[in-house]
Amino acid sequence: MAREGWDFTAAVPSCVLMFKQELPLMSPDDSDVALVRDRFFDPFEYLAERHKAGLLVTDFKQSLGKIAWQVPCHQRVQKIGPKTGEILQLVPNTEITAIERCSGHDGTYGVKHKTYALSRKLAKPVENRVAQAEAAHFTSGCPMAGGHIAHGLNDKPAAEHPLSLLRKAYGI
């Protein structure tokens, strides 16, 4: 499909990182891996490119209000920039509070008995920022990070994926 010109995306930053950085490191001489790498995008990176080219429909039906957005570590390491916030900010009457701090989940770190307490401690500053934002929505591009943070807040607010927020804005 990459040879046919298709672009690819994944809704989880660690999956995007795998296709864009990890697989090419494991197979540096494989031209097929390089082709997929070059056609793989973070969803909001892709939408930002479409917007820049004048191809993104922005006839949003519903504002989102205040959003507390935890920027996932796997997204930051890709050096994509704040594309999720930029796209969500296109929705009228939407205000983004970006929180660029680790959720403390780190794969299985946040669910192992031995590391759970420290994981909760690492999440606390993010939880405090989410609570202080008094936002209508809390989001993180990483479902595990979002769920971990929301758990510490008793799911008030619950974590929502930014693609789900975009769907709401479109009225879908």
Rank of each mutant, 00 (worst) to 15 (best):
P157W: 01
A169P: 00
C102N: 12
S63Q: 10
L166C: 02
V77A: 14
F8V: 03
Y170G: 02
N128V: 05
V33Y: 00
N154Q: 14
Q78I: 08
Q21R: 13
P72L: 02
M18R: 09
C15G: 04
G110D: 04
S140N: 14
K79I: 10
C102G: 05
H113R: 11
T9H: 05
V57P: 00
T84D: 03
L165K: 03
P157V: 08
E22M: 05
V126F: 09
L88A: 10
E22Y: 06
A11S: 11
G85D: 03
P24K: 04
L166W: 08
G107M: 06
K66V: 15
R3V: 10
L47D: 04
E22I: 11
Y170K: 04
L23E: 07
R101D: 10
P13T: 00
V130K: 01
I172S: 00
D42Q: 10
D38T: 07
A68N: 13
T115K: 04
F60M: 08
R37P: 00
K20F: 01
G110R: 08
I99V: 07
S63A: 14
Q89W: 00
S119Q: 06
C142K: 08
E49W: 10
L122M: 15
Q78K: 03
K168P: 00
L55V: 07
D106V: 10
K20R: 14
I99P: 01
Y46I: 07
L55G: 07
P82R: 15
D106R: 04
E4M: 09
E22R: 06
C73E: 08
E45Q: 13
H113L: 07
E86R: 11
A131W: 05
H113D: 05
P13W: 00
N128G: 03
H51G: 11
G5F: 01
T9Y: 05
R37Q: 08
K79D: 10
E86P: 00
F19H: 15
N128P: 01
I149Q: 02
I172W: 05
K121F: 13
Y109K: 04
H113A: 04
A169H: 02
N128L: 15
V77D: 06
M26I: 10
T139L: 07
K114Q: 12
Q21D: 08
A48H: 07
R3Q: 11
D7Y: 10
M18I: 09
Y46T: 11
G110I: 07
V71E: 14
P125S: 02
D155K: 12
I87Y: 00
L163P: 02
K52H: 15
E95V: 15
F41E: 05
T108G: 08
C73N: 06
L165F: 02
